[in-house]
Amino acid sequence: MTEENREIPVLEVHDLVRHYRLPRESLFREPGFVYALNGVSFEIQKGRSFGIVGESGCGKSTLARNVMALEDTDSGSVRILGKEVVGLGFDKLRPLRRHFQMVFQDPYGSLDPHHNIGRIVAEPLAALGPLPKEEKEKRVRDVLVSVGLKPQDVEKYPHEFSGGQRQRIAIARALITRPELIVADEPVSALDVSVQAQVLNLMKDLQEQLGVTYMFISHDLAVVEYLCDEVAVMYLGEIVERGLTEDMFNRPAHPYTRILLDAVPKPGRGKKRERIKLQGNVTGQTERRKGCSFQDRCPMAQSVCREIKPPLAPVGEAHLAACHFSDEVRAKAATA
C-alpha cells in the first residue's frame, strides 16, 4: 500500500450518531428513543475488507444504511473518497452513488420479482446518467459473466434462480458502476453452507481482480475471519473493539469479543470446553447508561465500569478496545 492511498481512505466514518424517535406513549410523556448509533468512527483503506460484527440490535444495519446515505443521519460525518455525503441533497448525492453500492441480506427480497435480470443488474447505471443502449447491454453482460452467470440470463426473472444465484445477481448489480466501495449487509447469512462458500470465494476473487473495498457486515465471526483484513465489534451502537482480524481474534482485548469468539460452535472439537460466559440481560437499546455499555452482561464488571465510560484506546498495533481491563483480557487470551 502506497503512502498516497493511505491519505484518502475509501470510507471515513466519524462520530456517527443515529437515534430513532419512538412513538409517544402518551401526550404528556416525552417520546423515547432507540439509541441505534452512538458515535461510531472508523476508516477503510482502498482494497481492504473491513468486517463489522455484532449481535442483533447492535446497530450494524443502521450503520450500513447511514453509510449508504439511505436515511437521515443525526450527526457525524461519512466521507467516501474524501467527499462528505451526510446532509447532501438527492441531486448532489446521485452522481456520487456510482462510487458506493450495496449488497443486501435477503436474496429473495432484494430483487424485484417483476423485473428481468438485465433490468435489475442495470439499475445502478441510472446514477451515471444516460448511456447508449449497446454500452449498457455490454456492461450487463460483462458483469454477469464476472460473477459466474451467463449473458443469456438477462431475459430471465428472479424466481428462476436459486438463492445463491440470486446473491450473485445482487453482487453483479452492485458491481456494474465499478464502485470503489461495496457495503455488504449479511450477504451470505441466508445461504446454505455449500453455497455460502461459493459466494464468499467469489467476493474474494472480485476483490483481487477489481481492487474493490468491502464493508462487510455479519453476525458470523468465522465468515468475517475468512474475508476481512480488519474487524470492528459493535455493542449497543458503539464500536467496543477494532483491529486487524488475526491479531484481534487471537488476542481479543474486550471481554465481549472474547465471549463472542467462545460462543461460536466449532465442529470436530468434541463437546463444549470451559469458557467465560455472559451474564445478565441485554440492556435495551432504549436506555442510556452511565459508564460502560457492556456493564450489565460483563463477567468482569467492577464499580469503575458503572461510573466511567472506557474510551476506545490503543491496546496494540492498530488495535483499539474500549475496556478498563483490556490488558487483563489480552493477558488471559495469551495464556489460553
Partner: peptide, 25 residues
C-alpha cells in the same frame, strides 16, 4: 467432506481458500 470443508471455521488460516461444492441444492 465438501460440507465440512466449505464451512468457514474460526482460527483457520485466512489464506487457505474455502472448498466449494459445485452447483446448488
Amino acid at each position: 467432506q465438501g460440507l465440512f470443508a466449505a464451512m468457514p471455521k474460526l482460527g483457520r488460516a485466512r489464506n487457505a481458500r474455502l472448498i466449494t461444492i459445485p452447483g446448488t441444492v
